[in-house]
Write a protein that binds this DNA or RNA. Structure first.
Lengths: 211, 211
DNA sequence: AGCAAAATTAAGTTATCACTCAATGGTAAG
DNA sequence: CTTACCATTGAGTGATAACTTAATTTTGCT
């Protein structure tokens, strides 16, 4: 239960009002969903791995789908940071901050986040492909605080002539494509997250978007 | 049955030795798998939409999984082109060919291919995330003729000092990240495939990888 | 037309699924 | 100790899944 992957549940208070056995159910579900997919996993299997009776799943969670929602809801809320963390902020407010500082901070922050929640990210990605409503939630999250913050940052970079004059949407799409490529290579094709490789990708991104 | 999406089945001769009803089964399966996912689709549902009896599915296809394989096998074979098509070849053998010509040809070719097989691509992507063996097949395809061809091309670009001195693997990863970002935006988030936007992405990629 | 083979059907069969519910067990306050 | 409450159990339920099979229809050949 001291799994690093579960940090996000503590932060978002999902574990509150849950008994030990119910937490075991959640952990087992994450494990099996990530491995075989939601649709291929039976509630019986989850109960067995969690060491509880099957019925116990349904006293805490409304149904199997409710269990899935408890897993992916925190990720949807955290995938786009509502505001930049302190490290990024202080780094970017320096006078001599560059486009490289900007992307280096953001990408390393997101890669670290995605890599430290790998199982839940796998579940979330698979579900997003199937479920239109999950995609809609992502779009709404993107359009909220994240968009207005990063939009402002990008406009400042444009004012300082540090970044190309593309639509901010296009800039973000390129940035997230690179980030996504790194994380998919890692999660699904066993590629390492070596600092070297990530630095190369960031350097390429900076060249791509420098003015 | 004159659906453009099905071109790939004609090219790969999947339709040979299939009756009209069996082709209807395949088409219905593509439709529903793409919409709801393989695991959430029942063989009964496929049969109903195809206008045949459920048992007919199992006389042509060994089982439900065999039906899925018939759909994704052609895509696995075609996702990495074994050799460049004539248009790209003639374009790249010109004396004055540039890095922009290179990526412009390749990316537009792949985006066109992926967009014209959107349903099958959706099925394939979902399945790749679940199924380790599908991922292994992709890795093997990548390592074959595709890799040796494009590896050679990249080395030539390096010899001409047109491209950065990164590992070819890293270069390809960046290229496919951009391509994947375009296609995912289109398939899952309803973004247009406007020539303008694609040109912007290609221009950014060229900047990223120019020497 | 007549016949053999192939295609197709429709009614099973068996297994497993998500989910329910009445009974049980533990715990903490009175 | 008693009582009330909530967590937990596990046997049970109806629905539905993939797949089989024997009967029937269609097809292709002479």
């Amino acid at each position: 239960m001291e799994d690093v992957e579960l940090q996000i549940f503590k932060e978002t208070h999902v574990f509150e009002n849950m008994t030990t056995k119910q937490m075991h159910i959640l952990v087992a579900a994450i494990d099996i969903f990530a491995d075989k997919g939601y649709a291929n996993t039976s509630t019986k299997e989850i109960a067995t791995q969690a060491g509880v009776a099957e019925g116990n799943i349904f006293s805490k969670f409304k149904n199997k789908r409710g269990l899935l929602n408890a897993i992916i809801a925190p990720i949807i809320d955290s995938i786009f940071p509502a505001s930049m963390n302190d490290f990024i902020k202080t780094r970017l407010t320096k006078e001599y901050s560059t486009l490289h500082d900007f992307f280096d901070s953001i990408i390393k922050d997101r890669v670290a986040f995605l890599a430290s929640n790998s199982k839940i990210i796998k579940i979330f990605v698979s579900e997003m492909l199937y479920d239109q409503t999950v995609r809609q939630q992502i779009i709404e999250k993107f359009s909220g605080a994240y968009w207005s913050n990063i939009n402002q940052e990008l406009n400042q970079l444009k004012a300082k002539h540090l970044i190309v004059e593309l639509d901010n949407i296009e800039i973000l799409k390129i940035m997230w494509s690179i980030t996504g490529g790194i994380i998919i290579g890692h999660l699904y094709f066993g590629q390492s997250l070596s600092t070297d490789k990530i630095d190369h990708a960031i350097a390429a991104l900076v060249k791509a978007l420098s003015r």
